[in-house]
Amino acid sequence: MSADTLSAPPRAVRFRGALLPLALFALLAVVPFVAGALGQPFYVSLFTRIMIFAVAALALDLVLGYGGMVSLGHAAYMGVGAYAIGILSFHGVDSGWLQWPLGIGAAALAALVIGALSLRTRGVYFIMITLAFAQMLYYTANALSTYGGDDGMTLWGRSSFSGLVKLSDARTFYWIVFAVLALSYLGLRRVVASKFGRVLRGCKENERRMAAIGYNTALYKLAAFVLSGALAGLSGVLLANHTEFVSPAYMSWVRSGDLIVMVVIGGLGTLHGPIAGAVLVLVLEEVLSKLTQHWWLIFGPLIVLTVWRAKGGVVRLFGGRA
């Protein structure tokens, strides 16, 4: 064995580890066809939404699962991305070439400022501060009466890409969101295995040790936070396009909590985990809410029990490797 392959896991393990992600993406890839065959276009819309939240959950997993930062305000970055689309659309700018980078950039900027302040602290403080700043953005959106205030506002339409692709077509949009999710997943796989990712994982496990070997840990954590905020912003961009509507509710703290639930129930610190978690949570919401309008009575205790008993999330049940 040569020095440069020392830490690579054996091929059989890598193959088994790839099975679950492949199955997940295969499931998502057949949804439009099944929905078409069943004559149920609603499923295309439901799974578009699921995949959008899966992107946000992936973003959160980078800071939560790999960086050990419990951010309780990630819906805010989604909201900033969505509002950037809404505000630009309101002022007649509907070009996606402009909207999308601005949406992502605005979310990254918000994450940079909030991250720089929050990362001065740790533990319970960090949780409270990320939540508080997210709530600040929530109230700010509420106060923007020009842009609908607490009612939110309807968009003129989805982003246009010089006529190259028509986002207004539900199936086209589905495949675009699918592609964004797949690229985010593959990209993050590289990132967490890279030198940067290794430093980030080290910071999660033992920040004091990482400082003692010469890393400016705050800087690496901040970079991860900004990257995560940008990706959450992208999911917000997609969400605004999907619903053709933006509202402060996108940034509510319950939304932020939902994202954490997805990541943890799916499997913290694995990248297919958050995707599985988004599918599971949103499908469960769909099913339970059909059963009873008081489905929170079931969902709440379910969360408590899962956290209490089943550490590691559902992907661990399938023997998947991180």
Partner: peptide, 19 residues
């Protein structure tokens, strides 16, 4: 990880560190 710290900054996001 300690060797990596000595080799300069670790803002390398793409190549597999273990290789």
């Amino acid at each position: 990880l300690a060797v990596q710290a000595r080799h300069g900054h670790s803002f390398r996001f793409w190549a597999d560190a273990s290789r």
